[in-house]
Nucleic acid binder design. Sequence first.
DNA 1: TAGAGTTCCGAAAAGGTTTTCCGATTCTTG
DNA 2: CAAGAATCGGAAAACCTTTTCGGAACTCTA
Lengths: 341, 341
Amino acid sequence: MDANTGRPRNVTLKDVAALAGVSIATASKALNNRGYVHVQTRARVIEAAEKVSFTPNSLAKGLLAGRTGTIGLLTNDLEGRFSIPVLMGAEDASGTGKMSVLLCDARGDAIRESYHLQALLARRVDGLIVVGSSTDPRKSLGSKLPVPVVYAYGPSEDPGDLSLVPDNIAGGFMAVSHLLGLGRRTIAHITGEKGYLAARDRAEGALRRLDEAGLGVAGGEVLYGDWSEAWGRSATSSLLDREPNIDAVFCGSDQIARGALDAIRDRGLLVPDDIAVIGFDDWEVLTTGSRPQLSSVNMDLEALGRHAARKLFAAIEGTDSSGVEKMPCRLVIRGSTVRVG
Amino acid sequence: MDANTGRPRNVTLKDVAALAGVSIATASKALNNRGYVHVQTRARVIEAAEKVSFTPNSLAKGLLAGRTGTIGLLTNDLEGRFSIPVLMGAEDASGTGKMSVLLCDARGDAIRESYHLQALLARRVDGLIVVGSSTDPRKSLGSKLPVPVVYAYGPSEDPGDLSLVPDNIAGGFMAVSHLLGLGRRTIAHITGEKGYLAARDRAEGALRRLDEAGLGVAGGEVLYGDWSEAWGRSATSSLLDREPNIDAVFCGSDQIARGALDAIRDRGLLVPDDIAVIGFDDWEVLTTGSRPQLSSVNMDLEALGRHAARKLFAAIEGTDSSGVEKMPCRLVIRGSTVRVG
DNA sequence: TAGAGTTCCGAAAAGGTTTTCCGATTCTTG
DNA sequence: CAAGAATCGGAAAACCTTTTCGGAACTCTA
């Protein structure tokens, strides 16, 4: 018990050793099953350790081993849409409590990012995962860092770094494949800002699949706008004015898809009977609340996070890789493309 | 450069000292502005440190100082709805890079939580913030921990702990006040599961305010259900069947409110002209996408997080407090209660 | 019984930093 | 010029753990 704070003092190996009547070295060996230590002595030490609930100081261990069992997660993704699944995946990949994660949000500010980076390196993290806020390539942290880095979601500009990104092209391809499989032939694509690589990639995949089917995109072109429900509504509405025979809409995000559903409903048309709608992101709060529930493309960020963590651990062990790896998306089918019940 | 990994070795104070031609002690003093060291010597040391981009090893520092500059954030809140704002607030309160946060998600599993707790204590965090997934009280981590703990969002069962929770009663009160201020008199309340304290508290605040105005809740009772859009739709729909003269609906969550907006729209009624709707949570993706945009009560979790961090830092410094502190909510007015130009 | 082999335990170093203490130099003053 | 004060730099301890190395005690064999 510490006199100043009234809180119990952290117990050290020395305390355990004293209680068990052995030296510090013996206590350490007893607890770690290392070297020769008499079975009775070991039992005595373990009992003593449990009695005072000894927890070895990771700092000291890390200092000695040159490994801290800590990784840094550096993100720019304010609301945590992307970082949290990645964090979860990383935690899964290592086993609970084995590896700890220091989470820093740079909030899109380079200065703040470099401060955080500094702090993480000072804490001697074993490695870093950098999560982007979009799939557009970002500046590399550089190759002269003392620890390995994996870029997740948003890739690094430097091909010498290892980046894991969702395969948006395949995602768009997959969404349109699904619609074609349902017999739809007049398929429009409404998506977000053209400045986003994610938007362009999803469109590319969609167009490629349409092309394979000998079709063009309904409405004559991909409709770029912003990532909002309002855009989804207005784009869908004016699209239906121009092309009343549309039978499917692939939306670049679930928000846009929600807007599309609303606009279609306003016309008195039925989803999916008259028009099938599919979104992108599979953001649960949006997809399961709508009428009907929204089919969507899930980027499986948790799997991406797991993979990122595994790659990072491998790099920490010495076998690092580089280049951009595209991770597959997953189709989640709900009532907006296939009538249920 | 480390021969094994090809990555630069971490540079230590010894390297700096050698480069500057001084002892380790002098180098330390020079860099920390401590003790007597000649101005030229200091300059030489600083130059050397910059040249090799020296970063002091936080582990060593922490080991010595008994302070790591790290806090643990222990959460059960899967999607990070609540933890992320709290994390941001905590980061704000300490200044970027000064304090680092170890984030652990126990996913509602007590075993996992205790593992994480163990790991955090082993890493010698200076303090802990525990974020609940609901405002229902949770088991205390106990008072015999070697570090201070602050409970955020979900309070501890033990009044000896310090808990910071959003003031849901005041939030409900505030929402109804707003509606009354708009001249509405027939106000219904549709909310989530009665098992949630948050739902009961918001209802209590609403009823209290109605009572002050000499009114009862429209429909005769608070409508408990679940936190979904579907419930919002069905509850609103049947409510309008029974009580067609409703002029406002206070919803216990933004999802429920979205459902209410849809149901009202389906009837051909106008929001806010015929019926005003206000939600709770101010979840941006839901409030700004709707037609019209949704007024809501914001729990200001970032402020709560800042406050939690400040309280934690105070406790670390030795002045800890206890009890449950209720943090005020904030009204965010949008088009669903007040028609905008 | 001597020697060899086993089994057990402890002293000490290492990891990187800060801080205290002390010796050494320079400067001031009588 | 000598004594004292002021200024500077370095040695060493401390934080806590793991690991290596060597010493001590014991058992077994010849």
